[in-house]
Nucleic acid binder design. Structure first.
Lengths: 232, 232
DNA sequence: ACTAATCTGGTGCGGCGCTCCAAATGTGTC
DNA sequence: GACACATTTGGAGCGCCGCACCAGATTAGT
């Protein structure tokens, strides 16, 4: 009706915090961390920056919230397989792979997952992961006095390994498919190193192309689990 | 002399790439990642942005260079202790603690160390760490076919654990000394969790105050090393 | 129907990384 | 010493950014 009111129309639907976070995740998935800006978000939601800051506060808080959403969903989606037959080792692998897969789907997660552990040692992400993993260490035969050490070791290994899959940052569709290419380039670069200075790199250069990230990750977990049985 | 020439005076000494990197490290140490800006750097060096971009390129490249300088120095400063008596385990611990201490001194390092591993799998940082650690795994009794897996597991654990000590970002002098305070707050928050939902967190809350990061780190390494002996 | 509380879109500010370029400085040649 | 040429420098300016702020629209309470 009105030809030109200062606020022509409003949201037909109320703008919820969840909507903002979900849209943020979409932007992050599509274009990496750099693609999440106040302006890209306001445009996508066709709103102003005021609404966003009213709901979520700063950009950092939005990133934290996105991380929390994704991690919580990932952990919830993969409970212990069959509740009766699952061993503690199974449960730990389940949690670890849930995080691994979450990062495969949302590459920007890697960096922020670690930041959460450091910046918010309370908070659902840190507590959730620690609790889920920690519960199993007793069943592994680790003495109570070493529970904290054991859980820390597991969590640290898992996060370190999983961070490996961080995003190079940029558009997904164009940067994604060169995994094989990337491995080849790495192998070639390692091959070019001076064999005298880098005998080890030369010894393993053949293994880089035939290795599978997920399998290597599971091998690493098996190593840590083995080591934990000797704690006490 | 001249009342106002467009370029009143120049550097009395040529501006070297090393100077820029060192100044950047100083700024990072003093104020965290946010304190390193083109402008703060040009001010400190009393130059213009042109000189800096001419020498080091982008800000990211400067951060990479700073990371490389610090890590290389840390690794070089701590060679195997006594060359004859050092076991492979000793050497691995030496490298791990060198990284641990480097991050204690330069908290901003944590984030960028992991990024280097991901973004520049060649490059002195990644190769240096891998080579140094990888050489030992053979001596540990790990079969050649598993060398890559073993080295990866070690590096991933070390980086994951060491990232824990990332900076909250801000001024060093004011933010630093509240370590005990921080642990107390964490313990209190864990204590407040619902004991039914978080039995594990409650079980270990007593251990958080008496634990020592460095010792826990060494325990973790011992766990991984133990686990590696079963590889094959 | 009126008021108070809640919520939203948009403008503008200070600061960022970085490009670009004229001028100052080195380097070679005769 | 004079000149041409390559190298190096300081700084102005551009297009972004996160975010504070606020007028006004909407909703809820009575």
């Amino acid at each position: 009706m009105a030809a030109r009111t200062p606020h022509p129309q409003r949201r037909n639907q109320v703008l919820s915090r969840e909507q903002i976070i979900e849209t943020a995740i979409e932007l992050l998935d599509a274009g990496g961390e750099g693609a999440l800006t106040t302006r890209s978000l306001t445009e996508r939601l066709s709103t102003g920056s005021g609404a966003i800051y009213y709901r979520v506060g700063s950009r950092d808080e939005l990133l934290d919230a996105a991380t929390e959403t994704v991690v919580t969903a990932a952990l919830a989606a993969k409970p212990a397989r069959a509740t009766t037959t699952a061993t503690p080792e199974d449960e730990i692998r389940t949690v670890a792979l849930a995080l691994f897969d979450a990062i495969a789907e949302h590459r920007w997660l890697a960096t922020h997952l670690i930041l959460q552990l450091v910046r918010k040692p309370f908070g659902p992400v840190t507590v959730g992961i620690f609790e889920r993993i920690g519960r199993q260490v007793g069943a592994l035969g680790v003495p109570r006095a070493s529970w904290f050490d054991a859980a820390s070791t597991l969590v640290h290994y898992i996060l370190g390994a999983v961070s490996q899959h961080a995003r190079i940052d940029g558009d997904t569709s164009t940067v994604e498919p060169d995994r094989a290419e990337f491995l080849d380039a790495t192998a070639a670069a390692w091959q070019d190193l001076d064999p005298e200075d880098h005998p080890f790199m030369h010894a393993i250069v053949g293994q880089i192309n035939e290795h599978d990230d997920r399998e290597q990750f599971l091998t690493g977990i098996a190593v840590v689990l083995d080591g934990l049985t000797r704690l006490g």
